[in-house]
Design a protein around this nucleic acid. Structure first.
Lengths: 230, 230
DNA sequence: TTTACGTATTGATATATATCAATAAAGAAA
DNA sequence: TTTCTTTATTGATATATATCAATACGTAAA
């Protein structure tokens, strides 16, 4: 696979859904303001606090999105995949990133000058509306996650995380865990030791199979129930 | 005070900041699609799950914005005041409200047909950008609150809430508490009994004065420190 | 192979916080 | 005024969860 092959935004399969609202001419401008870069697993793609100069999209690979909170304690917001715009809510507020993004696998990322995209908001109403929808969708996701973190107990939160990984990230009930126990904890809002213990509980009840980097959901119905009940 | 006096959107002092991006003609259309209604303290203005048919603004009074979560447990998101758009992130996603709003005081509210405002997104780029900024700002607020709820301890969260009430709601360090202890708990993410105990602690340390419905911040520096340290 | 280092696991313990139960205070209604 | 009802307060207790400490495991380097 030749990752350096000239891909144009016009025929890109990894592009943002909202790009369908752009005209051919506008897409051409996007393409002219596009940069590509490779990251190894573990490398930081952008850092909380730095200026939002580009919109970022993953062409392949996955990355974690996380906030560095009080006394360096981390909260993982989610996992980024291709096709989704990665650019924080700071874009229209203070031009600063409000979270960091780091590659979980080897990643090829596409950077598009933010000024160019922002300009289209003024000239292309459908694009503006698409962006409003995008931001709103993410805000809703954050809302729901907030609720779940403050109202569910640990078992419910971890069950929810496992379902998220299966459904949204790997599209399979049988996957290789990308995240360490520490990171699973940051994503589910608990200590790494708690992650270990709860995974053990779930395995003992035959709800999941955990052959360490491999996870298999054996009883989705029960897992769903644990997630719902909290 | 005659609340039923004909107010036009053109000279309204309680309007959304983003209305400054509308032309006189557009404002006229807004004015034609405007409805006003009065609510008594305690009454529900709109309910989570119901369709987003109108943008809501308070002309006067205050309201609480809250989510009804798992087993009816409530989470208060914030307090709405005049000048701010009240319409959830569902507006551009599923046309449903994702939280409820209830009057805390007697309230006069202004309803503007959402379709009308959405149309302007397509024809007025500055207005679209303003709305993007508005939603982004709220998303950032939610993010920060999320972090604070998951990483701070109770004293820090309640201190933060008191500062929020002083700075954002009442613009004074000396105010009459609008919220019951139950509601303060819903806003700070803790049980009502914990609110009582922590308020007592703060009063004992001469950081606040609490003559029950009246709150006075006596030592803002210390309160700020408690809020920051968690 | 051995060594070293990060990660995972397990058990013991500490702590924050919720829940329960009882009482007190404050308003509203009669 | 007295009675009723809601809200606030206090104390006792239960529980979820984090933290600490020790050990085991797995993989990369030597």
């Amino acid at each position: 696979m030749d990752l350096n092959a000239k891909i144009s935004c016009k025929n890109c399969k990894h592009g943002w859904g909202n790009f369908k609202n752009l005209t051919a001419k506008e897409l051409e401008i996007v393409n002219e303001n596009r940069f590509q870069a490779n990251f190894q697993a573990g490398e930081i793609i952008f850092k909380q606090g730095s200026p939002v100069s580009n919109a970022v999209f993953l062409i392949n690979g996955m990355a974690k999105i996380y906030i560095e909170g009080f006394d360096k304690k981390r909260m993982m917001v989610g996992i980024a995949k291709p096709k989704a715009l990665i650019a924080g809510p700071g874009t229209f507020v203070d031009d600063r990133h409000h979270y960091s993004v780091a590659a979980l696998t080897d990643v090829t990322a596409c950077f598009i000058k933010m000024d160019v995209l922002k300009d289209f908001v003024n000239t292309n109403g459908k694009f503006a509306e698409g962006w409003l929808r995008d931001i709103s969708q993410k805000a809703l996701g954050t809302f729901y996650k907030f609720l779940s973190h403050t109202q569910k107990k640990m078992h419910g939160r971890l069950a929810e995380t496992l379902l998220y990984l299966a459904d949204e990230v790997h599209n399979s009930d049988d996957f290789t865990m990308l995240l360490s126990r520490q990171e699973l904890g940051e994503l589910s809002g608990m200590a790494k030791e708690s992650v270990v213990r709860i995974l053990k509980d779930l395995a003992q009840d035959n709800i999941i199979e955990d052959k360490c980097p491999h996870i298999k959901i054996l009883n989705r119905k029960k897992l769903q129930m644990i997630s719902n009940m909290g």
